[in-house]
Structures are given as structure tokens and as C-alpha cells.
């Protein structure tokens, strides 16, 4: 009897302990995720009740907030996804080879190289973006070099420059996004590459594949989880970003993040801003699920 009682007690406490350990996290999520989410949802379905106090809103299940937002800002939405998409692809093209070299050829310099990837990001996001304003400015080193080499005509016909400028073009915005989010691509890819046994590449070569085929059939598929994580960490914040568009772009390069920021903080139009935020979130969630299914990452070990 006593032993059974002891067993019961240990079972009961074993059942409670995990919840106890989880409770700070659950509480945190409730307070800082679920509550704001509900508030945001409410706001997005409300109307402004006062012209002077932006916080004075009334819930009227105003679905027109969404239809109006789509009607007015579909251009900024599409532009955001296009910029973020291009920046993500650029990050993959630049970041994957870097991660590959660090993981497989880094040797004893591996940690130094990883440090070099991360160190610039000890400076604030804002400062680094503002630095690019100087680098790309009309009298700055890049534009001067292009003019000296007389490449401006070529670059303009490619749509990379416009009116002899780099600043205030989509090139600058996408470039800034690529630069700012590159480490978030490199690090997850590095982590998944580093776990791969290079003996697998030898095995693929042993089975009639040249180096490129071995990479494509074995190393690349095994690094997809890192590629997936890196893409999310790049694409999601890049689509919502407004700093790069604000400082590096012009009036024709506004992204949806700038619109939301403007509606919330400048115009005090909380319902529209909330509707835009909510839509961005829903599109991201659906997009992520489709992307995961496409890459088949749910299928990987």
C-alpha cells in the first residue's frame, strides 16, 4: 500500500512539474503575444471615435478597414514582398558559399571567420543603414567610381541606377536589406552544413556523381533546414522593414512597413494600421507554410 502511494505521488508530481516549468513561458506568451494580438485584431475592426485622440476607437466590426487597406496599399504590399524576396535570394546566393567555406574549409580559422560574419552587427542596425547613405550618396565613393569608369549608362539601362543616382533607388533598398539580413542567412545554413558528414559527399562520388552532382543530391538537401530557417529569418523581417526604405529609398520605394509606421505613429490612424499589420501577418503565415511544404523540410530528419 505504502509503495503504491509513493508511486502515485511521484506520478502526480511528474505530471505537474512540466507544466510548472512551462508556466513562465505560457504566462509570457499570454501577456505579450495573445493579449496584443487580440487588441490588434479588435483595433483592426474598429473605427476612430475622435479626430483628436487616436486611442479613442470603437469596435464596430468594420471589415471595410481591410478592403480599403488592400485597395489603397496593394502596391506597397507587392513591393515589400518583391524587395524582401530579391533580398532573400541575394542573401542565399551570397551567404550559402560563405557558410559552406566556413563549415568545410574553415579548419582552425572557423571561429575567426564566424566572428567576422557577426562582428559588424555589434553596431546598431540604424547606424549601419545610415552609413550606407554615405557610401551610396551622389558624391560618394561608389557613384564616383561608376562615373569614372563610365558604367552609369550601362547600369541605368539595366535599371540598377536612375538619373545618375544609386541612393533613392530600389537597388539601394534591396542592397540595404541584403546587407542587414545576411548574417541571419549565413548562421542557420552554417549550422546545418556543419552537421553534415563529408563522407556522404565521398559516398555520392563513389556512386558515379561528380562534385556538383554530389552537392546537389546530398549536401544541398541535407542543408535545407538551415536554408529554410535562414530564409524565414531574412524574408519576414525584411518584408516588414521600414528603415531601409526610409533612408536608402525614395518616395517610389515605400514598403508596407513604412506605411504601417506612418499610419500608426504619424497619422494616428490606428484601425488602418492594425488592419495592415494583421494582413501582413496572415500572408506571412500562409507563405511560410507553403514554403515549408515546397522545400519538404517537414520531411527532413
Amino acid at each position: 500500500m505504502t509503495s503504491r502511494g509513493g508511486e502515485d505521488r511521484s506520478k502526480r508530481s511528474a505530471g505537474i512539474v512540466p507544466y510548472g516549468l512551462l508556466s513562465p513561458g505560457i504566462l509570457w506568451l499570454l501577456l505579450f503575444f495573445l493579449v496584443p494580438l487580440v487588441t490588434l485584431g479588435r483595433t483592426s475592426l474598429s473605427v476612430k471615435a475622435s479626430r483628436f485622440d487616436p486611442n479613442d476607437i470603437r469596435l464596430t466590426w468594420e471589415l471595410s478597414n481591410y478592403t480599403n487597406a488592400i485597395g489603397d496599399y496593394s502596391e506597397q504590399f507587392l513591393r515589400s514582398f518583391a524587395y524582401a524576396g530579391i533580398a532573400t535570394v541575394a542573401c542565399i546566393l551570397i551567404g550559402y558559399p560563405i557558410a559552406y567555406v566556413i563549415a568545410f574549409r574553415g579548419g582552425r580559422y572557423r571561429n575567426v571567420l564566424l566572428g567576422l560574419v557577426v562582428i559588424p552587427f555589434f553596431t546598431s542596425f540604424l547606424i549601419r543603414t545610415l552609413a550606407w547613405v554615405n557610401v551610396l550618396s551622389d558624391k560618394g565613393p561608389v557613384v564616383s567610381a561608376i562615373e569614372y569608369l563610365q558604367f552609369s549608362g550601362l547600369l541605368e539601362s539595366l535599371g540598377i541606377m536612375s538619373d545618375g543616382r544609386l541612393l533613392s533607388t530600389h537597388t539601394a533598398v534591396v542592397g540595404g536589406l541584403t546587407y542587414n539580413f545576411l548574417p541571419f542567412m549565413i548562421l542557420p545554413i552554417y549550422v546545418s552544413l556543419e552537421k553534415i558528414d563529408l563522407g556522404l559527399a565521398d559516398a555520392a562520388k563513389d556512386l558515379y556523381n561528380n562534385g556538383w552532382q554530389a552537392f546537389r543530391k546530398v549536401v544541398l538537401p541535407l542543408s535545407l533546414p538551415g536554408l529554410f530557417a535562414g530564409s524565414l529569418l531574412t524574408f519576414i523581417p525584411a518584408s516588414g522593414d521600414f528603415v531601409n526604405a526610409k533612408f536608402l529609398g525614395g518616395p517610389r520605394n515605400t514598403m508596407i512597413g513604412s506605411v504601417i509606421q506612418d499610419r500608426f505613429l504619424v497619422q494616428g490612424d490606428l484601425p488602418t494600421a492594425a488592419a495592415l499589420s494583421f494582413m501582413l501577418m496572415i500572408i506571412m503565415t500562409i507563405g511560410t507554410l507553403i514554403y515549408a511544404r515546397m522545400l519538404g523540410t517537414d520531411d527532413l530528419i
Binding site: 558528414d197 563522407g199 556522404l200 565521398d202 555520392a204 563513389d206 538537401p221 527532413l300
Partner: peptide, 14 residues
């Protein structure tokens, strides 16, 4: 036209 059985087998995990 030779094939290898590796020490740690090197089977493709995916």
C-alpha cells in the same frame, strides 16, 4: 568502376 563500403557506412540520411 569500384564501389566503397565506408567505415561509418555513410548512408544518405534523407
Amino acid at each position: 568502376n569500384v564501389n566503397t563500403v565506408f567505415q561509418q557506412y555513410a548512408l544518405f540520411p534523407h
